[in-house]
Design a protein around this nucleic acid. Structure first.
Lengths: 202, 202
DNA sequence: CTAGAGTCTCTTGCATGCAAGAGACTATTG
DNA sequence: CAATAGTCTCTTGCATGCAAGAGACTCTAG
């Protein structure tokens, strides 16, 4: 995930085993798990490779993301008022501030916090697990950093966040869900509009 | 999944290895994967056990199921007309027939076919993978068989299926999604209303 | 120079052996 | 009879060795 390996070079079990001071067995178990999550591809008797999602997969993942985050917003609105919601409010205020200061890194961090606060606030562990796996597959942090550069998108994005928070505070589950889905959908359009090097087309 | 092991007896790696004619290593990899999917629990140096979802987890899983199947219905409606939709239509007609004939087993099979046809028809591989994992965790077939015995539920359920199909045919994604979510929500209430031995309370 | 066959190396897949720890069982003591 | 300490067995965790296969490389022939 930190980019140590590119998709055309193999990840040798032996090297990882030596690096972590263990044998190949636990390394193999870990890689098998990563394969199961779709992050690496193990080709039998050839090697293990980093696997980047295709453009098609990114589209699919965003569709599922939209659905899951919509559910999370819905559930959180049902639980209103809670402390997570206060955190979201502060997050939106802070976001407006750092954008005025043109602090891209701080904004990326706040976006990350917003989405995770919302999902964790759903208090649905199964939803959280599914979301976590999904985000790992999206290698999301990379995409976010690419998107923040689109002019005008950031301010719009924060307003969308704000709309979500307002619906949650109003204890309007369906409104919150639709606002969140609208937001994810909009952000996915910007991510997919950008041509990037990592997510190669099918 | 076939009930060979109950939750209080260990699943010995050695026995499985001998049964399948392989060594413990590939058995361990498989069990590790099942643990990752939440189907078994591996307690270090104690043993591996079948893991049934708690009532709380069943509730959470149904919430996610509702969301994912809603998305599937939405996506399928966007693709209308397709052959999957014809299959759903025939499924509903067939369902009415077997219920009149009081054929519970055939109905359970048709329910299974309906939901999977819908999800597969979404043509979203990531959604399909998430749904598959989810259904494995629910050990769904067992729950379905328990629910068909609730009087009056079956006929109602088929009418809900019909409403979903009609919205899909009308190329109304949001209507299809809401109809599907309504159906899953209703069925979850019946499943959760029933006290069962497997899903122990938390 | 090019094409092809053969070999050789490096990879993962699996078998096996040993160690460590959890839990049950037993024996002993009050 | 009950409680406790000790041992013993059975489990998984991990290290290691070997085999099989994929792919690269080289050498030979045209």
């Amino acid at each position: 995930m930190d980019g140590s390996y590119s998709s055309d070079e193999i990840i040798p079990e032996q090297a990882l085993a030596e690096a972590y001071g263990v044998s190949r067995t636990p390394i193999r178990e870990a890689l098998k798990q990563l394969e199961n999550e779709g992050l690496v591809e193990i080709r039998a008797r050839v090697g293990t490779f980093v696997r980047y999602p295709t453009r098609r997969e990114v589209i699919e993942l965003f569709q599922v993301k939209e659905s899951l985050e919509g559910l999370a917003a819905n559930l959180l609105a049902q639980r209103a008022p809670t402390e997570e919601i206060e955190k979201l409010q502060k997050n939106v205020q802070e976001s407006f501030k750092v954008v005025d200061e043109d602090d891209g890194a701080a904004y990326a961090r706040l976006v990350h916090e917003f989405h995770w606060t919302l999902v964790l606030g759903s208090k649905n562990q199964k939803l959280i697990e599914n979301y976590d796996r999904l985000m790992n597959q999206l290698t999301y942090h990379r995409l976010v950093l690419e998107t923040v550069s689109v002019p005008g998108r950031i301010k719009q994005s924060i307003h969308e966040h704000q709309a979500v928070v307002e619906a949650i505070i109003a204890q309007d589950p369906m409104g919150a869900e639709l606002a969140m889905r609208n937001h994810v959908h909009a952000s996915s359009r910007f991510v997919l509009y950008q041509p990037h090097t990592q997510t190669v087309g099918e």
